[in-house]
Computed example of a mutant assay.
Amino acid sequence: MHKNREDKVKLGIDAKWFFEGPPSGHMVVKNLVDEMIINNNGRFEIFLLLNAKNKQQAQAYFPADVRLIFLFWMPNILSNLLLIPLMTRLYGIKIMLFQNFSSIWPQQLFKIVYIHDVLFLDHPQYYSRLEKLHFRQMKHLAGRANGIITISNTEKERMVKNQVGAADDIAVVYHGIHKSFKPLTHQPADRIQEVINKYDLPEKYLLYVGRVNSRKNINNLIRALSLLEDNDLKLLITGEQCHNSTDLEELIHTRHLADRVIFTGHVPENDLHLIYAIATVFCFPSYAEGFGLPPLEAMQCGVPVVVSNRTSVPEICGDAATYIDPDDPADIAKKINTLLNDSCLYEEKMMAGIRHAAKFSWQQSANEILDLISYAYVDRKSYKEA
């Protein structure tokens, strides 16, 4: 039996990135909030804290039993330090789930901070001086939270090593995969053709999805492209190019690959599902990840994946992926060639990926977070006991 509204504990969720924000952050927040609302089952009275500019969208989107609080815009860290604590006082919110940056006050507020990663602590070379200064506050403020949620055991180990939090105070909740990612045989034929035409997709292509910056190691993927046995195979790079990206254009020109490398920029999620499913092989040679969701999305689409053997990627991809040394373009090319030349291995990795991806769902992620909050706040147990 559900509790009456006045009997429920008031849970606030920092949902400022629900309608827009950094691409990966927006995707995580949207999926988690949607599933937390669906799977709440009367446990909490949910308050969503959103940007005021999204007020009309939010009022039309969310069910009536979800309370909406609208905030005027300010940088995320300042909003979490100033605006959100004030709103928790005004609305009597007892528990607050923050994104990245915890607050200092109110003292009686039970604070849980969802920290996506602290890669900047171990891999500072991939971040600007301003980014490092900004993200460093994440570590300082985490000490003021009652609990931390992060996205992989690898990331938890990094946090403990760098004294972001104690092991007992950090819980790991894996990301999920949206159900819209599915194999080509499950996609509508008219949509497949529409996306092929829209992006002028080649008949066969390697696919990379994610930000285009030095940490993602696209340069070695391009070097590997020039070593492949199939000279007709193209490389499709889908994602936003960042300010610290390697000068890829010069590398492409030097390697005479201008007709084989295609940049799409950021694409809408509805198109991304098809771009994944149509791909021949998915490649993810990243040097450092907190989780590494794109390989799982590719797996769920029935596409074999070739991934880096660094940081969290082996933890997340398990035995379903083909692993490469990201520093070695020859190794990347060799592993891709092997997949393309061995139809049995290709089929085996395709099926293994589909099975592995089935272990990850946003519903499961949301339920784990709700359970953690229940144990940690309502029953006053530690994450370790939960």
Rank of each mutant, 00 (worst) to 15 (best):
L225D: 10
Y127I: 00
D371W: 10
C344A: 13
A145P: 03
R89H: 08
F62V: 06
D169A: 11
G92A: 07
H186N: 14
E20A: 13
R211M: 09
N220P: 09
G239W: 06
G318W: 14
E249F: 14
R355A: 12
I354N: 09
H273W: 11
A333F: 02
I84T: 04
A298R: 10
A189P: 13
D319S: 11
H256M: 10
E131T: 13
I77M: 09
R380S: 14
F47K: 00
R67M: 14
I369H: 03
T150D: 10
L49H: 12
S365C: 10
F181M: 01
H253S: 13
G165A: 15
P183F: 08
N100F: 12
M87A: 11
H273G: 02
Y205Q: 00
Y377T: 03
N341R: 01
Q163D: 15
L32G: 06
I84C: 05
S312P: 13
Y199W: 07
F47W: 07
M299K: 04
N146F: 02
K234V: 04
Q241G: 12
A298Y: 07
A189M: 11
L97C: 02
I46V: 11
P106A: 08
S374Y: 15
T246C: 07
H178R: 15
N220W: 11
G290V: 00
D371A: 11
S343Q: 12
Y208S: 03
P314I: 05
E249K: 10
V378E: 13
L221H: 10
L121R: 04
R89T: 06
R211G: 15
D122P: 05
L81Y: 01
V212T: 06
D319F: 10
N4H: 11
Q99V: 08
G12R: 05
K384Q: 15
D7W: 06
T88R: 04
S102R: 04
T246R: 12
P75L: 05
T338K: 04
T185I: 03
Q241L: 08
P329K: 01
F181A: 01
I237H: 10
N76Q: 14
R310K: 10
L221S: 10
R5C: 04
E297N: 03
K30R: 14
I275Y: 13
I104A: 13
H116K: 05
R255D: 06
P304R: 06
N153G: 14
V195Q: 01
G265A: 09
S374R: 09
L372F: 12
V160D: 05
R380A: 15
L225F: 02
G353L: 01
R211N: 12
Q241W: 04
S103I: 01
K161S: 13
I170L: 07
L235M: 03
K10L: 04
P23Y: 04
Q163H: 12
R223L: 09
E368K: 04
A279G: 12
M351H: 11
Q99W: 00
D328N: 15
T280P: 03
L345Y: 02
I148N: 01
T322F: 01
F120Q: 00
H134W: 15
Q59K: 15
F284L: 06
F18S: 01
H356G: 01
I192M: 08
Q363H: 05
D259R: 06
F18A: 00
